[in-house]
Simulated assay, not measured.
Amino acid sequence: MQPRGGYHRTTVLLLLRTAWSAACAVVLVVSGVAWSTVSTISTGVERSYAIPDDAPRSESGRNILIMGLTTRLDLHGDPLPDDVLRRMQAGESDRGGYNANTLILLRIPDSGPAIAMSVPRDNLVPLSSGGEGKIKEAYGRAKIVEEDRLRAAGTHDRRALERAGREAGRRAQVRTVSAFLDQPVDHLVEISLIGFFHIAEGLGGVDVCLRRPAKDPLSGADFPAGPQHLDAGQALSFVRQRHGLPNGDLDRTRRQQAFLSAVAKRLEGADVTAVQAMVDMAKQDVVLDARFDLVEFARNIPAEVRFDTLPIEGGAHLGGLDVNKVDQEEVRAKVAELASAPPPPPPNDGVPCVD
């Protein structure tokens, strides 16, 4: 039998490779197995019923949709404390809305490495609610429609509206991504900006490397070139910045993956107290679907997870909005290719430098 501390550390490191911030939240919750019972974990995490029991399922392996929301509110729709907003450097609590700015389809096969496929947030796609829009907008649009419907029917309790609206948003985001990629979604993970912040804060910051200096007042980014240590607020600015980067959102995706690598490196030297702090924090911020078996996930996830970003054709300007034009068949072909033959692993030479 593996020592208790060893099982815990191994579980954390394996799961940290699954995807960046949202997957980190899953990792932290699962890592609580080392100290607590399954029932404690289950009761400590928000659950969603957005994926119905009769939804299509993968015939082999599993697909997990990871959603990172832009909202500056907590799980109940309440504003974050002023001191937390100040340290996050992400603006006031009414900013951000409910766009799913981070969308990653994590494909876990029955054998071999897993593949985390980043879906560019500005892809113009058919939305499950009808019409076209940016893929990130499916959540927020459905949330508004559901809340308006409930108000018209006589529901005015703010928390009840928030809960029902978010469930409608999750359903719409799952259906939109599933239809666009022609892939079933077996599980979902949702986390908002405060969750990203809590992960870095629980570890005492992370180490990153930049190829050139970066400064962006919109995200709060102000970093010199080279390797450096970022506190939690700086780490959030690091993964949020897109203005001033050569490839905009695509470079931000690479930063998100670099952040994950930094968290994994940081965990290698973290003591039990620090990791436990992250576990406790993650329980406040993460939402999992009701059928997500955390213990089974921890025991069976592949030791190796690779990353890629799904293709776009180029930017377009429609109705005052910048969107990505996409060839749906090309994207679906890329998904099938990555699922069957993930890219080779990057060289293991420490924290990667990014733009």
Rank of each mutant, 00 (worst) to 15 (best):
V33G: 03
L105C: 09
E329R: 07
R255P: 05
G96A: 05
L15G: 10
P52N: 07
R158V: 14
V33W: 12
T102E: 13
Q234C: 05
D83I: 10
N63F: 13
V286I: 15
V305K: 01
I64H: 08
M1E: 06
P352H: 06
Q241N: 03
V326S: 14
T43F: 03
S36Q: 08
P79C: 13
L318Q: 12
S118D: 14
R107H: 15
S219D: 07
Q228T: 00
F223Q: 11
G44Y: 04
H187V: 01
D157V: 07
D280V: 13
H317W: 14
A200E: 04
A258Q: 13
R86E: 14
V29E: 07
T102M: 15
V206M: 10
Y7A: 12
D285R: 00
A214Q: 12
H187I: 00
V279Y: 11
T176L: 06
V145E: 03
A277H: 14
L288T: 02
A160C: 02
A50L: 02
R299Q: 13
V174R: 11
G319M: 06
W35P: 01
S21A: 15
R266G: 14
G319R: 01
S36M: 10
I104A: 08
L85D: 04
N324C: 04
A303G: 14
E330Y: 09
V125H: 09
P109N: 09
L16E: 13
Y139A: 00
R17C: 05
V38I: 09
D222I: 06
T10R: 13
R175M: 04
S261W: 14
A90Y: 09
P113E: 08
A232D: 07
T155R: 08
L230T: 02
W35K: 02
P343M: 06
M67Y: 12
A290W: 06
Q2P: 15
G205K: 01
G204W: 02
R170V: 00
V27S: 12
L310E: 11
L13Y: 05
F307E: 10
R240S: 06
P246G: 03
H76S: 14
T43Y: 04
L338H: 03
D122F: 11
S21N: 13
E167P: 00
G133R: 06
R159F: 05
S42A: 13
P113F: 09
L193D: 01
A264L: 12
V12L: 15
G314D: 05
V286P: 01
S178M: 08
G131C: 08
E296T: 11
L267Y: 07
L73P: 09
L310M: 12
V286E: 03
V45S: 03
V239W: 07
V287Y: 00
S261F: 11
E92D: 15
H76C: 03
A274V: 04
P3I: 02
S58M: 15
V287I: 01
L14C: 10
V239F: 07
N348A: 15
D216Q: 08
R299F: 08
L85K: 04
G350L: 09
S39T: 13
A264S: 15
L245H: 10
A138F: 00
R57K: 15
Q284T: 12
D148L: 00
